[in-house]
Nucleic acid binder design. Structure first.
Lengths: 228, 228
DNA sequence: TGTTAGCTGTGAAATATATCACAACACTAT
DNA sequence: ATAGTGTTGTGATATATTTCACAGCTAACA
């Protein structure tokens, strides 16, 4: 169907036009669902199919897909293969999403075990820890380096994303190190608010906060859900 | 959200009026910050102090605090002790936030090690796993039971919140079990969309999705940050 | 060749959320 | 006392996000 892609709205439209965070999150959900549908042998999918399992209504889905510039066909839906490759490019996964991890404690190890090997498109290339006992060993299939080696490794490997899994008190130091080394995005698992330059994106995953949130809503009977 | 979410409004105070999710998340942040300030010996705090470290602007902070019905004093700010106890009640922490964990894999163990003992107001009372090798042992200071024992234990202990840390394929089964046992809130760490009755609140923590999101924004230079 | 049904793309409306602006007030200094 | 300063509480406003509603396209079928 013909749609002119020009005139990307998004707020102030300075620099590059960025997709809103919510939309990006939903797009990642769609991608997962598409992979699943593809495995089942489906070739095309409708916006309402994509939406109903994820609790998102169809016009929302269509708007989101418009955002990545992918068009469907009336009465036929969206072609799965094409949409998937488009999304892979969109998320920068066409060459694989390569990251480093700082902090090899319990949580860091859990992440290594989860991602190394299992998730094809996501790779943790190296881990770093300040504990000399861990440095030099391979943990969960990933080599552990000292923090001093971080800048050179991140730069030479062209890594753009860092995961912070250190105690809160050391999170800022880790962030500074990663940012200085050239990372453009951070996944912060420490319960701390990081100060970074505006050119670096931070996604906070704060399990304690999430639990407290659930504590409130569990107390208050019910609550309509929302896809995040 | 399985079928319908129509008609559910939040505006007018029928029954209990629920706070928006975003507000609740910020309130949890304030609480952490207040604890920190209290440790430093502060007695009162201003909305702009609370806001600046968290990247939230002062009127927003004041509105949020209005939500819990706590009033400050012009020129003196908010009394820290009073606000903290108010928030504790608000989050249902006055008697402690007690939970159970389903799934004692890498991630489950990481959570146990993190929460058992360390976080005073949050307690994981019991862990459950289907692996007979784990059942009966104490892992990370928490006893591991078989899944069959879950309903009785949750009911008798009056647990309201469950944490799901099983593989995606088993997440729905775990959720069903917990809901049937009477849980009102779930923290879901599995990459799966859970179907639960509308009386149960689900908070999804999906690390893969978060990483993919960062992948996008890291590719696109910068992005203004937002407190979540 | 109609003709019908069903899906997409999108302007417009509705809703949710955040920010601004300022009156009212409380403390301090004089 | 009184003036001056700085902070709260909140109506009004602005922005962001979602949903609605429907025109227009496409396939299937008579």
């Amino acid at each position: 169907m013909t749609t002119d892609n020009k005139g990307k709205k998004n707020g102030t439209g300075d620099k590059k036009s960025l997709t809103p965070q919510r939309t990006v999150a939903r797009l990642a959900l769609y991608r997962r669902m598409l992979l699943h549908s593809k495995e089942e042998g489906k070739k095309t999918i409708y916006s309402h199919e994509l939406g109903e399992i994820l609790g998102i209504n169809p016009p929302q889905v269509r708007r989101d897909l418009m955002e990545v510039g992918f068009e469907g066909h009336p009465r036929r839906g969206y072609e799965i293969d094409g949409l998937l490759t488009r999304l892979d490019v969109y998320f920068g996964m066409d060459q694989g999403l390569r990251m480093v991890l700082v902090g090899v404690g319990n949580l860091g190890r859990a992440l290594l075990n989860y991602f190394v090997g299992k998730q094809a498109h996501i790779a943790i290339e190296a881990a770093f820890d300040k504990d000399p006992a861990k440095v030099g060993r391979a943990i969960g299939g990933c080599h552990c380096y000292s923090l001093e080696q971080l800048p050179a490794l991140v730069a030479s490997q062209g890594i753009h994303v860092g995961i912070i899994a250190v105690p809160a008190a050391e999170a800022q130091k880790a962030a500074d190190l990663l940012v200085k080394a050239g990372v453009r995005g951070l996944v912060n698992l420490a319960p701390a608010w990081l100060r970074v330059p505006p050119s670096v994106f931070v996604e906070d995953i704060d399990i304690t906060l999430s639990i407290e949130k659930v504590g409130y809503f569990a107390k208050m009977f019910s609550q309509p859900r929302e896809a995040k």
